[in-house]
Nucleic acid binder design. Structure first.
Lengths: 335, 335
DNA sequence: TTGTATGCGTTATCAT
DNA sequence: ATGATAACGCATACAA
């Protein structure tokens, strides 16, 4: 069978109405006679007509696509967010256009430019290094949803994890387990998430009257390797500690291996808390106590926020709660 | 500054030539006077002109986008492939349009349809459940690169891992370590990768004269949970074994935890080999011996293949080699 | 080799 | 409420 791809014009002719009418029905741009609407919809269904996204865009309409700027397309952390975005967008017949910035401002700008060229109807930025000013600038031209920081502006919604509170929960958990000397492995200090988590950690320690000094902290790169290295420096400092919280799970994995190499047992000798609760963490040895962030949920929320922005409904900023997941890498400290 | 987005028409006017000439220079569609070419290019550079992908597409040109069908956007395994594709495509100014099939044929078909609507210049399929016939069908309409199986057709290039050989390497390694009773945890039997790996495993066992029976095999889901469960069934069978190879690293992780729960040590009591060598596997306890597949490399190769297909250069099918990475989860078996 | 004219499938503007 | 008609930015068949 020689199926010609049906066009809006064909639908119009078939239904005996003008193209404009069909377009209006499609977009709800104006009030159309009910009977006609029904008729046209029937024809659309019969022909299996689907508007051409390209033509639509050229004519100044929507592209039904949302640009999503992430840092690494294969990030174990943001991966779930991508899936959440994809799932949610799909319900509304939108498609995500994923691009990666690699934690490089220039590259982020470049990719954003590409998204603009591609005429996306909105952009979601999963963290990143762009300045607030730049972000505000972008939101002036296209609906923007941003994670990793809180910003106020029309046409912009920010969504963030409760990193601060999450880190506090980790400390409280350890403190409840009678730990007094708690070390910290931080992510890169210029990384928003890393900062907030560190702040929360420090804040809660102070709150609880726990001593802290620079010997109880090392900086990693949010990767396994960095955690491994950081734990080694921590060990060399010779400042005693009975527990450590890592800025994220990946670093906790690395730290755990370093501990093992040093013949230190988890949790018998050292308690270890991660952050993010990667899917994996339920299966490490021992299963890792961690601070859970529903990254998938954040993805869904971002997409929902974008959709409502497009509809013109500015909604509030949202903050996704952290949750302590206790597993087997932490235990009561015996003095 | 009121920057108006420059159009091809503006370039033409500015350079004193016709739009068609500019178009021809852009696409190399026809021979153009060298002097004019230079002039036009200068104007293009000065104005910072970039052809509008949408308009280009509408007019029957290329969209400079490649559809990529993967199964889960956050797959820890295929993630690196996505990055490879992205990196390589970027060099040629193409952008990937990622969609997910979720191992569901209907959904794969649906997403492929979307890609067609979006008029991608080619599609890369990372494994999946589509029939060979369907694939051939697609390749008739658009350049196609497919992984996970070997197919012959014009306008199509297949790229595959050497799953078969990889599984054999795992067995040989164990055999060299004096293991005789080797169990297997397979991925879903209807999964191409799982099949090929199982075949390789069985083949090498036969080759080596090692006995095998159904009690030495359990099926998982390629996830940690599946590995955990599979290991438990293996344990219940009461058929003795001293080593086990898992169909992928994720299942190896789960299996390892199950072993631990059963008070069995790795590698002292049981040797364990994974498959895929996820980034993570260097940091598990103990670090996991695994079969390395350069997934990133496969992504790059897929993109390169696509690019050459677009240029009209049909190239050979490619197969990416497997490699044994020996770490600490395997050791010599003492009788 | 180069220019002109037309069309791609839609939305938007202006009438009616 | 509905219909003509003109863009949108580019590629291409046809002419020159």
């Amino acid at each position: 069978m020689t199926t010609v791809k049906p066009t809006l014009a064909m639908v119009a002719r078939e239904a005996g109405v003008s193209p404009s009418t069909v377009s209006r029905i499609l977009n709800g741009t104006a009030r159309v006679d009910a009977a006609k609407t029904e008729l046209v919809n029937a024809v659309i269904a019969r022909l299996g007509f689907r508007p051409d996204p390209m033509a639509r865009s050229l004519a100044g309409g929507k592209t039904m696509s949302i640009g999503v700027l992430t840092q690494y397309i294969d990030s174990p952390f943001y991966g779930e967010a991508l899936r959440g975005i994809e799932d949610e967008l799909r319900r509304a017949e939108y498609v995500p256009l994923f691009v990666s910035g690699h934690w490089n401002e220039t590259e982020e700008l470049d990719r954003l430019n590409l998204l603009r060229e591609r005429k996306v109807d909105g952009v979601i930025i999963l963290t990143g290094r762009l300045s607030d000013a730049t972000l505000l600038d972008i939101s002036a031209k296209v609906p923007l949803v941003i994670t990793g920081r809180i910003l106020q502006a029309p046409n912009l919604i920010s969504i963030d994890f409760d990193n601060f509170e999450g880190a506090r929960m980790a400390v409280r958990h350890l403190h409840a387990l009678r730990h007094e000397q708690i070390a910290y492995i931080s992510g890169p200090l210029d990384h928003p998430d890393a900062q907030q988590r560190l702040d929360g950690f420090l804040h809660e320690k102070r709150e609880l009257g726990l001593k802290h000094n620079d010997l109880l902290m090392a900086v990693g790169d949010f990767q396994e390797t960095g955690g491994f290295l950081a734990m080694n420096t921590l060990l060399q400092m010779r400042e005693p500690f009975t527990a450590v919280v890592a800025g994220n799970d990946q670093m906790a994995y690395g730290a755990r291996l370093a501990l093992q190499r040093a013949a230190l047992r988890v949790p018998e000798d050292i308690s270890l808390v991660g952050f993010d609760d990667l899917p994996h963490s339920a299966f490490t040895l021992p299963p890792l106590t961690s601070i859970r962030q529903s990254v998938y949920e954040m993805g869904v929320m971002s997409a929902k926020a974008m959709l409502s922005l497009i509809k013109g409904h500015q909604i509030d900023k949202a903050i996704v709660a952290a949750e302590l997941v206790v597993r087997e890498s932490t235990r009561l400290h015996r003095r």
